[in-house]
Design a protein around this nucleic acid. Structure first.
Length: 488
RNA sequence: GGGCCGCUAGCUCAACUGGCAGAGCAAAGCACUCUUAAUGCUUAGGUUCCGAGUUCGAUUCUCGGGCGGCUCACCA
């Protein structure tokens, strides 16, 4: 209670003393702020200067009082509208209430919509209604809230005071809806698979561990949706997708949050070429639908998401940007020596695959600003992808990059159960060499042994895609409540 | 975990080389009938993150701790 300013409590008591409930149960508004503005525009078209009476509601954001009149700004989900209050026109109770109002209070107002001398659409209020008394002051009105920690911890304040933040999250929602529409419109079935997994899962990331009390069994939060979606492909759903939360027990950075949203799609009888076309089509059509353009701002440059995107082989990209053709250095020691020669600080424990990945993330990824598909990856980086015909060490896989970050990963799915078993065994060895648990998902192998059609699969980092589409440089700017460090 | 930076009024920020801790917004009061970052006058608001040290004197310097941001490492 001590943190609540005395003056606000006093006003609350004053309002109650007037016989007014400061927290009424409901309020019938007839118009949002935006609708009220539109209503005025319609009235003006038919030669009127004001509308019939409307009722609006929102948070009071400003109070400009000059003698016998006041202008209040209220903000609702649609935007802002100004209230005009003349002491001659306001009823007695509203008049008394006005004295007890603070910026931040939620209020309702009834009156006609007209235009002030400065042409501002305005409600000429006859009555004011207290809808919720605010007991805490809002952030500074001009600079808003800029302390990054407070913005994330008290996101509601960020949303109240920063219009561009509201815009980002509104766009995020619209983009995800548009993606769903796109997938649904292309014959994909949206499904939900378990978040609680019995195994660590089919990706290399470390999982969060939890425990089921009744079963007395450890469970893991999923690090991918892949293995369950493939079971559905085996089960005969030819085109499936899932948009959902993934959890990875790893570091936090501008492009990593421990929980993030992925979309994975699987299409039977497709390969990575057709998946590539789907990705570029989907992203450019979603951008066009929601943003009205395929050209988005990125730092001080622009990115054009229009299909088709550039395709570049993984090997050529690394050779071109790093000057090292990893095929010439087929084992970890040779490659490490070459990388040291280039002045790179290389972890002596890294295996060959990790070294190659290091080359990718150091030299190539930051350069891929325009949307680009890197295609045909080394097999040792890709335990679930199918080999390219006639090649032992290359798989049919691509990753999509834009704005210097990876946004998608896809391959022609491995569907040979014996090959898959070999890859799992190798992967488990690698994990154990890193001191992690290496388990083999026998249940999944059993499913694949029943026959899985040739399939093209895809994973998209939805948060990262939103970053690109909304010109945000940090994943925390596109996640409403990002993971933060502990607070005492 | 390493490096860099930061922590001052509810919010946004000042305070020179160590010398009485300040402004704007928000709040309270007064004035004002067309403002929109309203305006003018007045008032209140502080454990300068915490603890030690140096000093006549510490927001400032030193050490330790806390919290946070960025970044590197980690991370398909």
């Amino acid at each position: 209670m001590e943190r609540i300013p005395e003056q606000r409590l006093q006003k609350l008591a004053n309002i109650r003393a007037m016989g007014i409930d400061p927290y009424p149960h409901r309020y019938k508004r007839t118009h949002t702020a935006q609708q009220a503005v539109e209503l005025l525009a319609q009235a003006e078209q038919s030669g009127k200067t004001e509308t019939e009476e409307v009722t609006v509601a929102g948070r009071m954001m400003a109070n400009r009082t000059m003698g016998k009149i006041s202008f209040l700004d209220i903000q609702d989900g649609s935007g802002k509208i100004q209230l005009f209050i003349s002491k001659n026109e306001l009823d007695e109770q509203s008049m008394a209430l006005l004295k007890e109002l603070d910026i931040g209070d939620i209020i309702g107002a009834r009156g006609v919509v007209f235009r002030t001398r400065s042409k501002e659409p305005t409600i000429r209020a006859k009555t004011l209604t207290m809808l919720s008394k605010s007991l805490q002051p809002l952030p500074e009105k001009w600079h808003g809230l800029s302390d990054v920690e407070l913005r994330y911890r008290q996101r509601y304040l960020d949303l109240i005071s920063n219009e561009n933040v509201r815009k980002t999250f509104r766009l995020r929602s619209q983009i995800v809806s548009a993606i769903r529409r796109y997938m649904d419109g292309h014959g994909f079935l949206e499904v939900e698979t378990p978040i609680l997994h019995q195994e660590g899962g089919g990706a290399a990331a470390k999982p969060f561990k939890t425990h089921h009390n009744t079963l007395d069994r450890d469970l893991f939060l999923r690090i991918e949706t892949e293995l369950h979606l493939k079971r559905l492909i085996i089960g005969g759903f030819d085109k499936v997708y899932e948009i959902g939360r993934i959890f990875r027990n790893e570091g936090i950075s501008f492009k990593h949050n421990p929980e993030f949203t992925s979309m994975e799609t699987y299409e039977a009888y497709a390969d990575y070429n057709s998946v590539m076309e789907m990705v570029e089509q989907m992203v450019s059509s979603v951008a066009m639908e929601i943003l009205g353009t395929t050209v988005v701002q990125h730092d001080d440059t622009t990115i054009d998401l229009k299909a088709p995107w550039q395709r570049l082989s993984f090997r050529d990209a690394i050779t071109q940007y790093s000057g090292i053709d990893f095929v010439q250095y087929p084992n970890a020691d040779m490659l490490r020596a070459k990388m040291r020669e280039k002045g790179m600080n290389v972890d002596p424990k890294s295996n060959w695959a990790r070294l190659v990945d290091d080359l990718l993330s150091t030299f190539v990824e930051p350069k891929l600003i325009q949307p680009t598909f890197l295609i045909d990856y080394p097999i040792s980086l890709s335990p679930l992808a199918k080999k390219k015909p006639g090649q032992e060490r290359v798989v049919e896989r691509f990753e999509a990059f834009a704005g210097g970050i990876e946004i998608a990963n896809a391959f022609t799915e491995l569907n040979d159960p014996l090959d898959q078993r070999e890859r799992f065994i190798q992967q488990a060895k690698d994990k154990m060499a890193d001191g992690e648990e290496g388990t083999i998902d026998e249940d999944f192998l059993l499913a694949m042994e029943h026959g899985m059609p040739p399939t093209g699969g895809l994973g998209i980092g939805i948060d990262r895609l939103i970053m690109i589409l909304t010109n945000n440089q940090s994943i925390r700017e596109v996640i409403l409540f990002p993971t933060l460090k502990n607070k005492e």
